[in-house]
Simulated scan of single mutants.
Amino acid sequence: MSAVSRGKGGVFFVYGYGGTGSDLTGLLMKTKLIIWDEAPMMHKYCFEALDRSLKDVMQFVNPANQDITFGGKVVVFAGDLRKILPVVPKGSRQDIVFSAINSSYLWDFCRVLRLTKNMRLTTGSIGGPNDGEADIEIPHEMLVDGGHDPIATIVESTYPDIADHIWEPSYFQERAILAPTNEIAETVNDHVLSQLPGEERTYLSSDAISVEEGNFGIHEMYSTEFLNTIKCGGLPNHSI
């Protein structure tokens, strides 16, 4: 008995009693269609390995299949090349582009089909024409009156009596404030910290530039003060 299940990246996995090679080979021979979702995120070697494997399997059905792409099987690659490409550790831009599926020899045998109709909108009602902006009415019971200090009001609404629950992990795990920008998130964090008891300490990041990794000239192009002002996702602030 065998079954097919979809795993990470859209790759199909095969399960069978005993896990014998003959079960897997037999299932691949019966397969009519293989769908690989988010294909642009995978390295081209993954598809080329599948191509060689299917050729080896399908040659037992017909020796001519050894010379046919994917052994004659229909393979659908779903995804968008304008989104996330394969991750190449310490790779250059050229390395990443070269690892994409459209850099493989298999791309010459692919037919590109573009989706032009939003199927989700066919099941619902669509509003009138607009210029990309629209007013959304939020129910009154969901609104928080910000008053003169919106940040303080939001923090108090989300974390009431925060000083009394500072040592309760579940109190913070069950609550969160979403901020549209990093600057606002930092403002909220500063306000929350001001409500907590205890002595405040400031920790600064290291401001040394390593010249052993080929970073010559960076200290001449950018000052240390400028580098310390950079605030972005995934990079801790200079001052914490």
Rank of each mutant, 00 (worst) to 15 (best):
M1N: 11
S2R: 14
A3M: 13
V11F: 03
F13V: 05
T20G: 01
T20K: 01
T20N: 00
G21Y: 08
S22H: 04
D23W: 02
D23M: 04
D23N: 14
G26Q: 09
K30L: 03
K30M: 14
K30I: 06
T31N: 00
K32W: 13
I35R: 02
W36P: 04
M42V: 03
M42G: 00
M42R: 05
F47D: 05
S53N: 13
V57C: 13
M58G: 01
M58K: 10
Q59L: 09
F60L: 10
Q66A: 14
T69I: 15
G71H: 10
R82N: 09
R82E: 09
R82Y: 04
K83E: 11
I84M: 15
L85T: 11
P89M: 01
Q94G: 10
I96D: 07
S99M: 00
S104F: 08
Y105I: 09
L106G: 00
L115G: 00
K117D: 00
K117V: 01
N118M: 01
N118P: 08
M119S: 02
L121D: 02
T122I: 15
T123V: 07
S125C: 07
G127H: 14
G127F: 11
G128S: 13
A134G: 07
E137L: 03
I138T: 00
L143G: 01
H148V: 02
D149M: 02
I151W: 08
S157C: 07
T158Q: 12
P160Q: 13
P160R: 04
I162L: 14
A163V: 08
E168V: 08
E168A: 05
S170C: 08
S170R: 15
Y171L: 10
R175G: 09
R175A: 11
L178T: 02
T181M: 10
N182W: 05
I184P: 09
H191A: 11
H191S: 09
V192Y: 00
Q195M: 15
P197D: 08
E199V: 06
E200W: 07
R201Y: 07
S206H: 08
S206M: 07
A208W: 09
I209Y: 00
I209E: 06
E212K: 10
E213C: 11
I218Y: 00
E220V: 03
M221Y: 06
S223Q: 06
E225F: 09
T229A: 04
I230K: 05
G233L: 14
G233P: 02
I240G: 06
